[in-house]
Design a protein around this nucleic acid. Structure first.
Length: 561
RNA sequence: GGCCUGUUAGUCAAGCGGUCAAGACGUCGCCCUCUCACGGCGAAGACAGGAGUUCGAUUCUCCUACGGGUCACCA
């Protein structure tokens, strides 16, 4: 077979050679150990938790080594592409603190723009580049065309195919048949090709598999160590009939030309690593380092772990936004999952920016983890407890603007009050941890607002007359200028006067000697003022509410009894 | 089904031939305390199973079981 002729027939329009292309993308001028990493999603609509997870790894490794982190849009499957998805992806990642140095960015007009010298960063615009390498492979007898008819092509349907693959029965005969078909495809003549071309028949390009499935190749993965995988023995498609390559070929060409040093991707790619290695070798490219990250899982109906799929709760970053998790908290959670020593580091460095942490590949786990919302909640409480009242205010306001207009308006109507509320128990060594999500803020502080206040808890086990008497005494004696000690001394006096024990130790020694304790008296006041049995420090609460409101609430509660 | 990969408490995880097998979340108990929250102390809870190598296996090897992944003109 005259491969040079075949190459010309197939790609008459391609005049460049790989050498020409290489010249346009010289090696990057970076420090010795700088890592170049990338995130290469297909723009199918939303950011997956697993995507954020990988993105954090790539961002950390690149930036911590003085390297480059870029974004490449893998839009080679036009059927699945969703308009505006790339913008959303970039802004969502930015929301979580992930920023790219290069590649797709959001331009000043709000549309996608591109930055950097190693583009195009959108695969659908790289057709000419792929074709140069594809032609070269054909010329060297390493790739060959397979023709189909237009009708056949049109009947191809992605979701049908997916269903077919899933339900397929894998028997030995089937494997045998596949092999035979592959071998048959390799047999063709130049004349046949010419006829097809003349006829306008579409074709795909397949690589000639160099391996033997019975033999193993040693592969190295930075997370998993040395692996033995079967050699590639399948003639994979490297150019679809639309002239755009599927993932494999695009990965090899792009990551080589873009100077990627570390390929970080999900473990679902592990199985195709030998193919990729073969491609790099055919193309004469230096292989990048590979890191196949563990999957984030969720529990299915049978209690089994499953790869977190699109529909699962917690798969989309939108879920976290809606639920009210602060981006910092989600990032913090992911970091603890990603690097097993992160949590320890964080407890020693509670106030350091996460970028101070030395992220290491060694500390990454190679088995999939279940997303643990309880843990996330705990981490989130810690994160929020370290924020200033001002930060809480803006976080809560931002979330409420989207999901609770009424509360957002209340927050905005009196910022000073909101800040005072959020300052309770904040700052200092042991801050309160009352909420872990923005959505939990309103239920916690609602009683501060007249519009939301209502008596939620009931006092049980006490004589109404006693309750009324205590409340009347408190209302009659309340002075907003008292300090906390004086304030509480007054409550003790009221307790004693009404037959309640003012001292808890005394009371515990002999509860039957009293109607109750000062704790009970406090609870009367607490329910009257906050509507609840539990609340943050009452003295402070009253200060924020103001005397008029406090007395008013006590009186109306008294009357309701 | 073939191949790959993984398996330490409910969850996430240290460990890398000799440990009473860390720690965190969750659960429970106690303390602090006017309630709550915080904080402190403590408890229960794990090396999937079986062979082998070894003086000694959670750690190395093999087998079994069970998860997960993959086998598309999807990425």
């Amino acid at each position: 077979m005259d491969y040079a002729k075949l190459a010309e027939l197939l790609f008459p329009d391609v005049t460049e050679t790989p050498e020409d292309v290489e010249k346009k993308y010289p090696p990057r001028d970076l420090p010795q150990d700088a890592k170049v990493t990338r995130f290469a999603p297909s723009p199918t609509g939303f950011v997956h938790l697993g995507g954020l997870y990988q993105t954090i790894v790539g961002e950390r490794l690149a930036h911590q080594s003085g390297g480059v982190f870029f974004l490449r849009i893998e839009d080679t499957d036009e059927k699945r592409e969703i308009a505006g998805a790339a913008q959303k992806l970039i802004s969502t990642l930015a929301h979580y603190g992930v920023h790219f140095d290069e590649g797709a960015v959001i331009g000043e007009d709000g549309n996608i723009a591109y930055k950097g010298e190693y583009g195009p960063y959108k695969q659908s615009e790289r057709g000419p580049i792929y074709r140069v390498y594809a032609k070269d492979l054909v010329r060297r007898g390493l790739a060959y065309p397979v023709f189909t008819t237009r009708e056949e092509l049109e009947s191809l349907n992605a979701s049908d195919k997916k269903a077919e693959v899933k339900s397929r029965e894998w028997t030995e005969e089937f494997a045998e048949q596949q092999k035979e078909e592959m071998l048959a495809r390799r047999n063709f003549t130049i004349e046949e090709v010419e006829a097809h071309l003349k006829n306008g028949d579409p074709f795909v390009l397949r690589v000639l598999a160099s391996g033997d499935g019975e033999r193993k190749v040693k592969c190295f993965d930075l997370i998993r160590g040395e692996l033995e995988l079967p050699e590639n023995d399948r003639d994979e498609i490297i150019l679809k009939s639309n002239g755009i390559p599927p993932y494999h070929f695009a990965h090899a060409v792009d990551d080589h030309l873009m100077g990627t040093t570390h390929v970080i991707r999900g473990e679902e790619w592990l199985a195709s690593l030998p193919l990729h290695l073969q491609l790099f070798s055919y193309l004469g490219f230096k292989t990048p380092k590979y890191m196949h990250t563990a999957q984030v899982m969720s529990l299915d109906a049978n209690g089994n772990k499953k790869k977190l799929s699109k529909r699962d709760m917690g798969a989309s970053m939108d879920d976290y936004t809606r639920l009210g998790y602060a981006p910092e908290a989600v990032r913090e959670y992911l970091l603890t999952v990603l690097n097993s020593n992160y949590e320890e580091w964080r407890s020693k460095n509670p106030d350091s920016p996460y970028t101070d942490f030395q992220f290491s590949i060694k500390k990454m786990s190679n088995s999939g983890c279940l997303i643990d919302f309880e843990k996330l909640e705990d981490i989130s409480k810690n994160v929020l407890s370290r924020m200033t009242a001002e930060q809480i205010y803006s976080g809560a306001l931002e979330w409420s603007r989207l999901f609770d207009e009424e509360f957002a308006n209340l927050l905005e109507a009196d910022k000073e009050k909101a800040i005072a509320v959020f300052s309770i128990g904040r700052g200092g060594k042991k801050p309160r941890k009352d909420f872990g999500r923005w959505s939990e803020v309103k239920p916690f502080v609602s009683f501060f607002y007249k519009e939301l206040f209502k008596v939620e808890d009931a006092i049980e086990g006490f004589d109404k007359a006693d309750i009324k008497s205590c409340l009347a005494d408190f209302a009659g004696n309340y002075d907003e200028n008292d300090d906390q000690n004086t304030w509480f001394e007054k409550i003790k006096q009221i307790a004693a006067k009404n037959g309640f024990c003012p001292d808890m130790k005394l009371y515990k020694a002999d509860p039957s000697a009293y109607k109750g304790s000062v704790a009970d008296v406090s609870s009367f006041i607490r329910v009257a003022v906050t509507g609840r049995l539990n609340s943050p420090d009452l003295f402070t609460v009253m200060n924020i509410l103001g005397k008029a409101e406090t007395i008013d609430r006590i009186n109306s509660f008294k009357e309701s009894l």
